[in-house]
Design a binder for these strands. Structure first.
Lengths: 183, 183
DNA sequence: CTAGACATGTAACGCGTTACATGATTAT
DNA sequence: ATAATCATGTAACGCGTTACATGTCTAG
């Protein structure tokens, strides 16, 4: 069984919240900040087909309510397991370097698939990995800065600032989760 | 003439700094934070081929210095024009939503292709577009927050914090460029 | 003379994007 | 009757990733 793409996982996560049609899902992508993760029907419909073929989603009795035939989809037990596995993957340095936005998605769906304690561990792992990568970036900056252009250096610093923000966010998010948990 | 991918543009930008071989370029990707933008030879070599076919880069007399044959490449006049056009594209909302990292790249290479005044305009455009998008995100948050899970909301806030950081960075970078310019 | 670093590639595969194509229903 | 909206797709195309395949020079 191959893994899930970020789009696959997002679709599963939304279907886990409520059964709905491909059109509803597409609207959720287009009309909300989820648009960041795709919005073209040429990606969403084929992805749903693949998920159906793998048994991770299934069609529910097609109600037709105005418009054309509606094929509402629901997530299956196997689908929930696949989503949980995707969310719960070990957090690696590679994720931090290449897939930071996917990490945010994984955290967003964590409440649907894991315990709050697990979410806290995710945040601790994230902060650790991000700070380790920050140290690497600062070492690189110290050695390469003299040869870089001004705009090159500023662009680099923008990336560093982004990771610093993520590290801070992980701290604050952990604190928030703990507070809400104790009440 | 089709556009350039981010990888195409990065290769052109590096070759604009110094003529070098595919292997040198690949090393630059693997060993520096450029790794964020790819590192596989299966992407870099085909991209170089395409650029050569389009006349944007050209081989220089192949010196062989240890190892195997080395095909050093240099950027052509057409290549510099293509790079400048890529860097100087109008900055759109779509860039902010889907291609934030490419915007950083464009700014990084801006000193090679444009005047400092143009770099300042880029930063002003960036800040304006990011703040406009932030307003949209906050409107969405206000309406959708009640229905969102705790981790979902926190993940959303991480994205908001990221964009806030970018807006602040654009301000600071502009100030820095102006200072260095007046001295 | 073998191992490893140097240097350049290719083949298979999957996915996403853009652009287009329908068909049905509601509003004017 | 026509336009717009709802709803679901497909086809072409390009690109990137992973994994593999060489060939050459240097160090031990």
């Amino acid at each position: 069984m191959p893994g899930l793409t970020a789009l696959d996982a997002t679709l599963l996560g939304l279907l886990d919240q409520a059964a709905q049609s491909g059109y509803d899902l597409r609207r959720a992508f287009v009309q909300t900040p989820l648009k960041h993760f795709s919005q073209s029907p040429g990606a969403i419909y084929p992805a749903l087909r693949r998920l159906e073929k793998r048994g991770l989603v299934a069609a529910v009795t097609a109600a037709r309510r105005g418009g054309r035939r509606r094929r509402a989809l629901r997530i299956t037990a196997a689908g929930r397991r696949a989503l949980a596995a995707w969310v719960g993957q070990p957090l690696t340095r590679a994720d931090v370097v290449w897939r930071m936005d996917e990490l945010a998605l994984r955290f967003a769906f964590m409440e649907q698939t894991h315990t709050p304690a697990r979410a806290l561990r995710f945040l601790a792992d994230l902060e650790r990995e991000v700070r380790a990568y920050l140290a690497e970036l600062r070492r690189y900056r110290a050695s390469a800065a003299p040869a870089m252009s001004r705009t090159g250096l500023l662009a680099f610093d923008s990336g560093v600032a982004g990771y610093e923000g993520q590290a801070r966010w992980a701290q604050v998010a952990a604190k928030t989760l703990k507070q809400r948990r104790s009440r």
